[in-house]
Design a protein around this nucleic acid. Sequence first.
DNA 1: GTGGTCTAGACCACC
DNA 2: GTGGTCTAGACCACG
Lengths: 127, 127, 127, 127
Amino acid sequence: MYLDPNQSKPIYEQVIFNIKKQILQGILSPGEQIPSVRALAQSLGINPNTIAKAYKDLEAQEVIVTVKGRGSFVNQVPSNDELSLQEEKKIRQEIREWLTEAQYAQIPIETIHKWIDEEVERIKNGN
Amino acid sequence: MYLDPNQSKPIYEQVIFNIKKQILQGILSPGEQIPSVRALAQSLGINPNTIAKAYKDLEAQEVIVTVKGRGSFVNQVPSNDELSLQEEKKIRQEIREWLTEAQYAQIPIETIHKWIDEEVERIKNGN
Amino acid sequence: MYLDPNQSKPIYEQVIFNIKKQILQGILSPGEQIPSVRALAQSLGINPNTIAKAYKDLEAQEVIVTVKGRGSFVNQVPSNDELSLQEEKKIRQEIREWLTEAQYAQIPIETIHKWIDEEVERIKNGN
Amino acid sequence: MYLDPNQSKPIYEQVIFNIKKQILQGILSPGEQIPSVRALAQSLGINPNTIAKAYKDLEAQEVIVTVKGRGSFVNQVPSNDELSLQEEKKIRQEIREWLTEAQYAQIPIETIHKWIDEEVERIKNGN
DNA sequence: GTGGTCTAGACCACC
DNA sequence: GTGGTCTAGACCACG
């Protein structure tokens, strides 16, 4: 896992992001134990509280399950047959927020579609 | 202009966003004067400091020019024939941040492309 | 608001519980601002981080909305026309956990129903 | 006996819960010997310390009696003619804790009564 | 060993 | 003024 200190995104969100990416890439499999709070904190050189916060959020999102005294484990990826309306609203909101920026910078819409396809590949393959 | 207080995005960024959108939609044309800091603040019912910060950022991005004692005016939209590498890196970063979420929620890539096209239309037409 | 230090329930959960109760009782109304993190922390004599945690959880549950630099505000109570299955599962789980205890203590089922009605009244009226 | 590792309730409490349920259901009768700490730990695949703690708590609650060198035995179910005030206070507290949640989720009081009756049946019949 | 809670105190972004 | 993030270090419950 790699954290970019130059990024404005808070560390704990970067950790959440990375764990999810590793699950999608199959580096972490359902049922598998993820590193302990203290171990990950030490290997990243940051405070354990920050990792604990990330793990708690991941549990609230039902990405992992945590058992006190034993550790945290990867959950099943949700079988989102019915795309929750809330999820759609959230993603659309995020699209809207950078798309005006992109339009203003005169980036052709085809280029944007291309970039998205490339990034999807990147997530699947692992950079 | 409409501000959504429920949005996590800070107000000054929402103001920047809205000014840019109005330029893209042709509501504001190059050379045209935009409302004064005080006038806009009053009409939106927010703190003038917040508008001042937004205008300062817009000037730094060369979207508007401010002439002391006269007001602020819309600049030419940049003719970005050559897409700056920095611009691309920034947009790709923003794409990456929500795309992992979307992948995790099992949203098909075709759906995402469709949403983007819809949102582009929305920007062009003005909601 | 009153915190019971003898209770095993963590302080931040007691705070969440109390805010929700006050909303149900009409002490706090939708749109109204709740006390600032620092103010509530001081008046309860506890660390501001603990209140901040409670408020963040309340925001994740969509009970309040928080605007950086302004404060936190009560949201609309959800119009749960369709009772989410997840909600039902959670409540049933909680019922199951103490009901065996009650059965073992030989408490008649009618008594339990009576207690629940009394507690509902108590929530509505405010102790 | 079945333990749910996904449940937030600690394992030793789940063991206590299950023993009591089996007594209520008549699977275990007063005077009957229950499995040894080691045997139960092995059959559940968990740490013997955990079972030992459960048995110790059960003995403190006078649900079982342990005779050194012989094993643990089921006690008489208490003939709680007079409901202890302490018992009532404890149960009422537990009711209060989830009832606010239920009220907030707009669950009708009739539904809650129905759920309780259903769960009582479930305990009596053994799922 | 594991995670959960809490305190104390710092710095930052926003209004 | 507001909340958000992060650090450092403590103590507890659980296995």
